[in-house]
Amino acid sequence: MTRTKIIKLVDGEKGDIIKITALLLDGVMRRRLLDLGFVNGAFVEVAQKSPLGDPIAFRVSRTTIALRKEESGKIEGELIINGE
């Protein structure tokens, strides 16, 4: 891949690996995401969607964290590996 593609975490498909470039949220939620390892430059893998499609589980700093689309829709990153 030569061209980098920026996508939101919520739009990732199972198996995609995304390198975080921006967190578009504030306050406690931003804080919590940072605490959990959703920091700039971190690699995130889309692990599993819940039966009703939302929330989605992500692998980040060797743990699995589920986020709702409200939050995962505000995290952007480069699509590094396309799971498909």
Binding site: L36, G37, S61, R62, T63
Partner: peptide, 9 residues
């Protein structure tokens, strides 16, 4: 031990 990165934090 399996997720030290976040744990060291």
């Amino acid at each position: 031990a399996t997720s030290l990165e976040r744990n060291f934090n």
